[in-house]
Design a protein around this nucleic acid. Structure first.
Lengths: 217, 217, 217, 217
DNA sequence: CATGAATGAGGATTCATTCAT
DNA sequence: TATGAATGAATCCTCATTCAT
C-alpha cells in the first residue's frame, strides 16, 4: 500500500513538473529528457510512471478536469438563484485559470494541433459539453425566474460564455497580458451583467417598462 | 525567359494549400511532403517558393493580418458613432473568422507552442496590440459621447473583448461547434450590448434615472 | 548505474573508426551511417558521442595535434645541438606521418576545402605557426653556433621545411607512393643536410675555406 | 567554325570562373548555381557546355596540365646541363604555382577526397609520374656528369622533390603564407643546392677531397 | 526500482540535373 | 541556344522508446 502511495505521489510530482516544461518549451518542443531532467530523474524512469509522452498529459488533464468539475460544483452549490450561480461560476472560472495557468497554456498548445475527433474521453470538447450543458440549464432557469434576459438563446449563449472564457485563457497564452487580472475580472463581470452600450440597456429597460404596463393592463 | 510561371501567384497557391494541410494535420504533424503532395508539386519545389516550413506560415500570416487590418478599417469607416464603429468591428470580426477559418485554427496551433517573444513582427501579440488600442480608443470616445457605460475601464474592456473574440475562434478549433454561427453572433451582440442579467440593466437604468433628477434638480 | 560504458574510450574508438572511413570515402563522401556501421553501432549512437560530423574530426584532430606536440617536444629534448634537434624533428615528423597516416590524409581532404579562417583553434594554420616558430628559432640558434648555413633566412626556411614535410604527406595522399618510406627518408635527410648539387657544396666549402684564411689572417 | 570557336571560348570563360568559385567555396561547397551566377549565365546553360560538375574540373585540369607540360619542356629546353635543367624546372614550378594559384588550391580540395585510383587519365598521380620520371632522368644524367651528388637515389629524390613542390602549394592552401614568395623561392633554391647544415657539407667536401687523393693515389 | 546507453524511424532540407519553353 | 522551374534522391540529425544492468 505504501508503495502504491509512493508511486502515485511521484507520478504526480513528475506530471506536475512536466506541465511546467511543456509550458515553457511547448508540448512538441519539450523532449522527454527535458522533463526527466527537470524532475531530477533518469530518462528511463519516466517510463516507469507513464507509458509515453501523451500519457503524462492525459494524467495531468484528468487532474485538471476533475478539479474543474468539483470546483464548479462547489461554486454553484454556494449560490441560491440561477443568476448567482452563473456569476459564481464565472468567478470560479477566473480563479481556476489563475490556479492552473500552466495547464491552460499547455492545452492550447496540445489540443490546438488538429487532433479533433481522436478520442472522446480525452479532449476539451468533453469538458465543454459538460460545462455548456450546465450553463445552458442555468440560463433557462434564470429566464424562468425572470432574472435572465429572455431574449437570449440558452444554448448559443452558453457556448458563447464558454468561448469567452477560453478566450481569456488563450489571450494569456498568446500575448503578455496588459491589464491586471483583477481589472479584467471586474470588466468581465460588468460586461456580462449589463453589457457595454448605454443606449441598448435603456431601450431594453424602457421596452420592459412598456411590457409591464401592457402586462399590468 | 523559360517556362513562364507567376511566382507570386504560385506561392500564394502553395501557401493557401499549406494552410489547409496544417489545419488538418496540425503544424507539427504536417510534413513538407504532405504539403507538396496536396499542392500537386514535388517536395523540392516547395523550397523554390519558401525557405522553410516556418516561412510558409509567415507568408500566410501576413496575408491574414493585412486582410484583418484593411477589413477592420473599412468596417469602422462605414459607421458614424463610436458605438456603431464598435459594433461594426464585432460584425467584421465574426465575418473575418468565418472567411479565414482554417487560418485561425492553424494560428492557435502554431502560436500556442510557447514561442512567445520570438519576433515582434510575427506574432499574434502584434495584432492584439493594434486592435486593442483601436477598441480602447473607441470605448473612450463612446464614453465621452455618452453611448458607452462610463463604469467600464477602457483598456481592460478592450483586452477582454479581444479575448472574447479569440475565444470564439478557439472554441471552433477545439470542439465542433454546436450552435450555428448566426445564432452565436446574435447572442454575442445582444450580450455585448446589454449583458445577461435583467436586474443589473434595470438597476443601472434606474440609477441613471436618478442621476437625471439630480442633474435636473 | 546502468550499462557501464567508458564514454571516453568509446568515443575514442568511434573517432578512430571514423578516421578510417573518412580516409577511404573522403570526408564529404563518408555518410554518418558509414561511420556507424564501421563502428558497429547504430546511427543514433554516434550522436551520443559527437554532436555532429565535424565534431568527430575535431576530436581526432585534437588527439593528432597533441601527439604531434608532445612527440616533437620529446624528440628535441633528446638532442644536444640545434642541428641535432632539427634532424631529430625531421625524423620524428617522418615517424609521425607514418603513425598517423590516415589522419594526415583526412586533413588534406578536410582542410583543403577553403575553410580557411574559420576557427583559430581548429586549423592546420595553428599547428603550422607553432612548428614554424620552433624551427625558425632552431635555425637561428644553429646559425649562431655555426652549425647552420648563415645565408639562410630563418623564417622562410622554416616555412619551407614545414611545406616540404606537408608535401611528403600530401604526396602519399594524392598518389600511390613509388618509393619505400625508408629511401624517401634517407633522401630527405641527405638533401636537407647537403643539398643536391655537388658544385654548390664545393663552392661553398671553398668559400668558407677562404673565410677561414681571412679570419685567421 | 566561328560557332565552335565561340563555344570553346565561352566554355573556357565558364571553366575559369568555376575555378575561382571552387577556390572560394571549396569544390563541394560550390553549387552549380554559384558557378552560373558568377559566370553571369543561367543554371541550365552550364549544362550546354559541361556534362556535369566534375566535367568542369576535368576541363580546367587539362588546361592546367597542358600548361605545366609545355612550360616544363620549354624551361628545360633553355638550359644546357642537367643541373641547370633541374634548377630551371624548379624555377618554372614556382612560377607555375603563382600563375595557377587557384587551380592548385582547388586540386588539393578535389583530389584530396580519397578518390585515388578512379581514373588514370584524370588524377594528379598522372602528372606526378610524368614529372618524376623527368626529374629522375635528370638526376641520373647529372650524376653521370658529376654535377649531382652520386649518393642520392634518383627515384626517391625525384619523388621527394615533387613532394616538396606539392608541399609549397599545399601550404599556401592551408594557411596564409607568412613569407614573401621571393624569399621562399630563394630559400628553396639555396636549400636544394647546398642543404642546411654547414658541417655536413664540409664533411662531404672533405670526404670527396680524400677520395680524390685516394683515387689519385 | 532506476538508469542512461542504444537505436532507428522519421523529417527537414539541399542540390545536381533535367527539360519544357 | 539559353533559361530557370521542377524534381527527388540523398543526407544529416532528432528524439521517443526500449532494455540490459
Amino acid at each position: 500500500m505504501s508503495r502504491s502511495v509512493d508511486k502515485k505521489e511521484k507520478a504526480a510530482r513528475i506530471g506536475s513538473t512536466a506541465i511546467t516544461v511543456f509550458r515553457k518549451l511547448g508540448y512538441h518542443g519539450a523532449r522527454m529528457v527535458d522533463i526527466a531532467e527537470a524532475a531530477g530523474i533518469g530518462k528511463g524512469t519516466l517510463y516507469e510512471y507513464f507509458r509515453n509522452k501523451d500519457e503524462i498529459l492525459r494524467f495531468e488533464f484528468e487532474r485538471y478536469f476533475a478539479a474543474f468539475q468539483s470546483g464548479a460544483t462547489a461554486a454553484m452549490a454556494g449560490a441560491d438563484t440561477p443568476a448567482d450561480r452563473l456569476l459564481s461560476l464565472v468567478h470560479f472560472a477566473f480563479d481556476h485559470v489563475t490556479d492552473w495557468e500552466d495547464h491552460c497554456g499547455v492545452y492550447v498548445d496540445y489540443f490546438g494541433s488538429g487532433r479533433r475527433g481522436e478520442e472522446a474521453a480525452f479532449s476539451l470538447a468533453n469538458i465543454y459539453t459538460v460545462v455548456e450543458d450546465i450553463i445552458s440549464r442555468l440560463i433557462e432557469e434564470g429566464q424562468a425566474s425572470g432574472e435572465i434576459d429572455r431574449g437570449l438563446e440558452p444554448d448559443a449563449t452558453a457556448e458563447l460564455l464558454v468561448s469567452f472564457f477560453d478566450g481569456v485563457v488563450l489571450h494569456g497564452v498568446f500575448s503578455e497580458r496588459r491589464c491586471k487580472a483583477e481589472s479584467l475580472r471586474a470588466a468581465a463581470l460588468r460586461l456580462l451583467t449589463s453589457g457595454v452600450l448605454v443606449g441598448a440597456a435603456d431601450r431594453r429597460a424602457e421596452k420592459r417598462g412598456d411590457e409591464r404596463f401592457e402586462r399590468g393592463g
